[in-house]
Design a protein around this nucleic acid. Structure first.
Lengths: 318, 318
DNA sequence: AGATCAAATGAAGAATTGCTCAATCGCGTT
DNA sequence: AACGCGATTGAGCAATTCTTCATTTGATCT
């Protein structure tokens, strides 16, 4: 019998119904309330819930001229293989949603293929938001790997483990990197790198059809730092040596050159300088990302980019 | 693109932007208008355009999605006032639980109202399971009536008397029909129908806010038969005359037409052709119910339906 | 059982959105 | 250049949606 109506589930079902009727069916909230047998305010709350829980997803199928223009210029200037620019919000240039939705669309593009493939992921808040948007599918033939460790200095696993979330959603095999982002010493790094699981990751990464990475700034509000992957001291040192951005922990300067030594000598992540023949797509937007993105583009650290028009414009204005 | 600014294209671009900002970005139309440099009404028109041209697409990622779709199609096709489709279990297409839980929810919906109301019930295993799920409440102001007799041919009261169970649970007044489902003769039926209690039921049924009925197949494993409400001979006769289903004892053919004469001439139940202005909701699922449900829908015998997605799909595939 | 607290609810009002309609604009025609 | 016609526009209003808040409900702990 199992007649136990789960508390959260039932509500989400209702929310899904409400969302469907509202957005797909175009019904008014009053009608929906009557249909579902609830009051009008409750119907409105259910719809809001459906949106906030991403039960309902919005997608845009239209190449927007200005964005395409920017994409073309970026592609030409920096020899990109892939570039997607979405409309940003001038009043909230930090808003992650738009870029995340676009990234999700492209993640889905790869995920939905039936031929087995390897997807590599970095870290980042936008990436995490994007992964949460990917429609659940059954793709056990795929492999989702991490190019970067998922443990903070204190030994805790990262809350932003995109690999796990994505693999959960699509039922793929998961290959996280159970190490810190930055080792305590070069010796420790060497130790990690000799482990079988690490070498496996190394080999899989070379086969990756696509690699999605976040792109981080170097500064006191850098996620890398505030999430506890690197210490205050390390941050200061990087900054002093000219680092302006990082990808999967690898710090680089304005010219997109990976710094020698310093913290980089202890970064455990897979080397970005040796990617696969697949795409390496950076995902991110916002004023703080302009400099890192420009640097990464100059240094040819990435072959693809997903950002918004404001960031793209700023990157081009150099 | 910097090509030629096509007249329609430019507008669609703007519409896409507006739609994106509205649905993905969650901006207000006023903000969007300012961002795009147009007036508020124009922004609203652009958003509407984006939706109507499917530049923006809505997608529901939830098991309920397919069910909603089916419900909509059934509602449209058969002019239903109410339709609820729940996810069924393909490995156990006969499983009654899901549908029963849903029916219980809707029973509760009516029961929990404080204004006095009349609920009418038919028979059926699913209905019985549903009634057992209704949360006990104190609603002495309600009336629960039966549209159908509760006595088998041998004079014993039915084990599935849903009216008693429901009324017990909610402390309402109960109005069972203390007759057989099928009388021995037309004269006997006439006798029953002149009784005061029967006439009272008749009047109450017209006031019923909602009527929940099971829907039965006509066949050797039909509950109507195996529970002893009709004899082997009667069953054979019905089958021969084209009956494919029954509701509260009234047998109907593929087109949902109530059969003339035969067993129907002795059915004591309240006529389904004269319901109230309230809903008449059929509850049931399983492969055997597909044909009866389709017939009942065709004949407009019911104005509401609760079933599972498998059954609903089969009903639509006609 | 009784008390306490958090969650959920609906009423009411504020904000937003959708729509009508008169005015305007663009554009081809005379 | 003037005219006419249809498309487009924004003002204003009605309908809908969102938010706040007081209240109730249900659950938990003593």
């Amino acid at each position: 019998m199992s007649g136990k109506p789960e508390p959260g589930d039932e509500k989400l079902d209702l929310a899904a119904r409400a969302g469907w009727l509202y957005y797909v069916g175009g019904e008014t909230q009053e009608v929906i309330a009557a249909t579902l047998g609830v009051s009008r305010p409750v119907a409105q709350r259910l719809i809001a819930l459906a949106v906030s829980k991403s039960l309902i997803k919005f997608r845009l199928d239209h190449p927007i001229a200005a964005c395409m223009e920017l994409a073309k210029r970026l592609t030409d200037r920096f020899e990109l293989s892939f570039c997607e620019i979405v409309p940003g919000d001038p009043t909230q240039p930090e808003a992650r949603v738009s870029v995340a939705v676009s990234a999700a669309t492209w993640l889905e593009h790869y995920v939905s293929q039936t031929a087995p493939l390897v997807l590599a992921l970095g870290t980042g808040r936008t990436l995490r938001t994007a992964v949460a948007q990917v429609r659940p599918l059954s793709r056990p033939q795929h492999k989702v790997i991490s190019r970067v460790g998922n443990m903070a200095r204190d030994g805790s696993a990262s809350a932003f483990d995109v690999v796990m979330r994505l693999a959960d959603g699509i039922g793929s095999k998961r290959y996280p990197m159970p190490t810190p982002v930055v080792a305590d010493s070069e010796e420790e790094r060497a130790l990690f790198q000799t482990q079988r699981s690490f070498r496996l990751l190394f080999e899989l990464a070379a086969q990756a059809k696509a690699t999605f990475v976040g792109i981080g700034e170097i500064g006191w509000n850098a996620p890398l730092h505030s999430d506890g992957f690197i210490t205050d001291q390390e941050l200061a040192e990087l900054s002093e040596r000219g680092a302006v951005g990082e990808i999967t922990g690898w710090a680089f300067d304005e010219g997109g050159r990976i710094l020698d030594g310093s913290v980089n000598a202890r970064v455990v992540s897979l080397p970005i300088t040796q990617p696969s023949d697949g795409l390496v797509i950076a995902v991110g937007n916002g004023p703080g990302k302009v400099v890192p993105i420009r640097a990464a583009l100059r240094g040819r650290l990435i072959s693809g980019l997903i950002t918004d028009d404001l960031t793209a414009q700023a990157v081009l204005d150099s």
